[in-house]
Nucleic acid binder design. Structure first.
Lengths: 334, 334
DNA sequence: ACTCATATTGCAATCGGTTGCAGTTGTGAA
DNA sequence: TTCACAACTGCAACCGATTGCAATATGAGT
């Protein structure tokens, strides 16, 4: 068994409280006893049990991290940032994988049982109501990549998908495209819907024709490829705006498989700017989502609301930017 | 605050023990009280606190998952499998990201403080001694993708890297290659060393010349690309055996950037068979590591040794197989 | 040296469960 | 009806910490 408070206290010749206090900062202990305790603790190899501490303080330093997209490489970076940033702040991520989970609500029960201090919901494919269930259970939550919803009042960190959709339409129009297709992510994702709305809106303002609209079943290469091949057999378009780089890459391979060359025969505009987008084989022009800012901000926010749960819901939106590479023809202005 | 045992007991008109027992299986409770308790619990929305339970039972149902490779998409699949399999068995993963961590030993302290039931160390770039530190701290560990080491006596699940190296050499020789290069993963990784050893051994038996040996700094596209460009400027080889698909893809793009065509001018043999390897732009011939079997087996093993810590160290090695695609010229036998 | 405010200390209750033990209840066999 | 035995129940101690409170020690000011 591990060394406990009691043993350290005995060896240092002080009370258990004294030991406890030297290990919680801000507590009142004299320099003298602190030294004694630290010496004894070191000799014994003592580390406070976080479990016991959690029980006593009702704080676990655990943050639930819910994700349902373990196919998209974008999430690798996301996990990396989340875990290292949480770690840096002295929290641990308790990962919940909802990818193959039929009943997402179970995660609430689970995270509640572990008494996590807060939850980060990193997905755009679960509805705001899911996030708000946490809030109703009084567990601090931030919905990263989520959509703010006036009625649910949940903290959201992400991008302005509407504006990004507009940006995409503008970009395509600027390059002189007249007839394009949209190949979105999963139809029910709020991000998909908002981007499409923004895109349609601006497209109609600009006289850009949307010849076809498709949705990939999920954020995978295969789904992108599949959706694109359907699109190609039924419609001829000059360019396609994809809801995700991975989907876009699948779509590009599908087009190339049909003998089309990019961007001469068909243009592609991606979304996210994942690492792969910069690979030579694809060199994808895409709309960049500032993942790093979003994640760091999410972590900062969740930690902040742990300390101040009453805080009213905040929406933090970061700006996207276009990354010019070679899958669209050059702008007419150049 | 959450509902506690005490309240349920009061409402059901029984003792706290009775409530506790109806929620721990195998305990002795009459059908009658069980019903009463369940009714009360449901009405109150009671869920046992896992924190409190952990303190009392000294079991947390938490499994530490240590990884240091958040760049390689292979790990996305690995995380997916790990988390969902642990979840399925009623455990939770406590993720530790060692990617940018200078002092890996800290993870031991941390996981010990959380009193995790067991640890899965999923990396081939940390030495067996690191794994054995956990064993010495009496915390059950399995080293996935690790190397067994007689002196440290740690459970290992993975592949026989030596044999895989041999397989690679054999494959290249079979295709009639005479002079090849090896572009390994990080030099200090045990997997890299073993594959190289197996490769060299078999190569010399087969009269296959190893014209150059390089190591990518890490498992990334950029590192592969970088290492390959160095190789190309100094040596002319017919094919290269890469220590990882991602590295290989970087290398391929580097070669293509130099105007080489694959497999006409140069052949590539990858390792792992990640999803991307099957993408049309690469269509990589590679040696497949049965990731799924490895992960499921690791989880099964760690859970088993949680219940029986005395169990002596086991090494589970799964067979690899070659996946034929189009980056090597066809076998002479065909 | 004496007071009094302030800093430290230890006691004991508490967090929310589990579990060994002894006492109680219920059952079937005699 | 009685007895032995098994099944069930509740008591109370415990898991390893934190923390309010009262008691004690310290130190500054006079």
């Amino acid at each position: 068994m591990a060394v406990t408070l009691r043993e350290v206290a005995a060896r240092a010749g002080v009370s258990r409280s004294a030991v406890s206090r030297t290990f919680t900062d801000g507590a009142s202990v004299s320099e003298k006893t602190r030294k004694k305790v630290e010496k004894a603790a070191k000799e014994l190899g003592y580390r406070p049990s976080l479990i016991a501490r959690s029980l006593a303080t009702n704080r676990t330093k655990l943050i639930g991290l819910i994700a349902n997209n373990f196919q998209n490489p974008a999430f690798l970076e996301i996990f990396d940032l989340f875990t290292s940033e949480l770690q840096r702040r002295g929290f641990r991520p308790l990962l919940v994988n909802l990818t193959n989970e039929s009943d997402p609500e179970k995660s609430l029960v689970l995270l509640r049982q572990y008494n996590v201090d807060g939850v980060i919901l990193a997905t755009s494919t679960l509805p705001p109501s899911f996030a708000s269930a946490f809030r109703q259970a009084d567990i601090p939550i931030v919905h990263t990549f989520g959509k703010s919803d006036a009625s649910t009042d949940v903290h959201v960190v992400g991008i302005d998908n509407l504006r990004c959709g507009e940006m995409a339409a503008q970009t395509l129009a600027d390059r002189g495209y007249r007839s394009v297709a949209v190949l979105g992510g999963p139809k029910t994702a709020t991000s998909t819907q908002d981007r499409l709305a923004g895109f349609s809106q601006r497209a109609s303002e600009l006289g850009l024709k949307i010849a076809d609209i498709r949705f990939a079943a999920n954020y995978t290469y295969a789904a992108g490829r599949e959706a694109m091949s359907g699109l190609l057999t039924e419609n001829r378009v000059e360019a396609v705006f994809c809801g995700d780089d991975l989907i876009c890459i699948g779509a590009m391979d599908s087009a190339r498989g049909d003998g089309l060359s990019i961007p001469a025969d068909i243009g592609f505009l991606g979304f996210n700017d994942i690492t792969i987008a910069s690979w030579a084989a694809y060199d994808l022009t895409t709309i960049r989502q500032p993942i790093r800012d979003i994640i760091l901000s999410s972590v900062e926010l969740v930690v902040a609301i742990v300390d101040d749960p009453g805080r009213s819901a905040e929406v933090r939106l970061f700006p996207c930017s276009i990354v010019e590479r070679s899958t669209l023809r050059p702008s007419r202005r150049e």
